[in-house]
Simulated assay, not measured.
Amino acid sequence: MRSALIVGTGAIGTSIALALRARGVVTHLRDTDASAARTAQDVGAGTTAAPNGTVDVAVLAVPPAAVATTLVALQQEGAARCYTDVAGVKALPEREIEALGCDPTSVVGGHPLVGNGRPGPLAARADLFEGYPWALVPTEATANRALNIALTLVSLCGATPVFLDAEGHDLAMARVSHAPHLISTLLASRLRDTEASALRLAGKELLDVTRGAGASPALWADLLSANAAAVADVLEAFAEDTLGAAAVLRAPGTPDAAPLLDLLRKGTQGQVALPGKYGVPPADLATVQVVMGDDLKQYARFFGDMAAGGVAVADIVIDRSAHQGTARMSLTVSAANKPVLVSRLRRLNWHVQGGQ
């Protein structure tokens, strides 16, 4: 791949441009917001100058409802040999592309499964997609040449391609992303009238469950509307489970422990089914917790000690208690490396919670 046109210079589009630029691809930037395109150019994502001829791939980093109309315009100008998008739903754009009479042979639906939670080109990173899945949704009409170009794009961005059809993609997203986000938002909305003294008791579990509610309402309204039926199906099933749990808890007398245990065990089974980070099975991961002062110098010394130790860390979560001036660092490592890491940290006088 030698050249690309990125249409839409938000965080995702600009990150794709940065990743391609880092691998020698000439990238051209286009956006209805000229200032966003200039900002993306200023951070090194490419040039706002128009391509001199047809590029290898045009990436449509636009909202789902704008994919088809954007594609029509690009195909009419002969902008690229292959067209792909990054929309979080696939069935709606696919239907609209067909209805508008676009050439389907050069189109491959796409969706990188990552987001940094911040909008705009200044939030972009060249390594944003590394190690993450990237859904590719070709149709029966997609030509092999277009599919190969899309695969090259995903590879250059450091992601792993996952092939799905449009309906399968949207059902999967309803289950693993869209409905969970809406449930998170609904739960967070119940906190609006909660007394401040009660909210001070909130722990990491509530923060984790409601974190998604802080994302852009406008962006999520577009996604949920475009995948409404599949999300509604998941919510209705979840509502049945919720009402069933409420019925168990409201049973006369002391709630029967057996139904409660059954509900909780089903949740455990579902959680265990989730794949681990970076392809590591969850059973092979362990957590090490370190308590330290909530201070940048402490953080710097800690991460310096970690880097010198040579133990790979799959995930790091910092749980701060600002009013106490402390922080709990939760490190996810392979189970085999946990004893090594615990021993090293204790030798360096770090306060490790729990045993090996």
Score class of each variant (00 low, 15 high):
R211T: 11
L219I: 07
D208E: 14
D241T: 14
L201D: 10
P217V: 04
L156T: 04
L264P: 13
H178N: 09
L151V: 12
A232E: 08
A166N: 05
A141G: 04
A257L: 13
R265A: 15
D262F: 04
K204P: 00
T268N: 11
A188T: 10
A246Y: 10
D256P: 00
L164P: 09
L206F: 03
K266F: 05
H169K: 01
S184I: 04
P255D: 09
L199S: 13
S197H: 13
L249M: 15
V176D: 05
A150G: 14
L260A: 08
G203Q: 05
V248H: 01
L151I: 14
L249F: 15
R211F: 09
K277M: 00
L274C: 05
G244L: 04
P217M: 03
N227T: 03
A232C: 05
E195M: 06
A221N: 10
A218N: 08
A196T: 12
A213F: 07
E167M: 07
A159S: 13
I183H: 01
A143W: 10
L201T: 11
A179Y: 01
S189V: 02
P255N: 08
D222W: 02
D193W: 00
E167Y: 06
R265G: 11
R192G: 07
L182G: 02
P252I: 10
C157V: 08
L219W: 03
R175P: 01
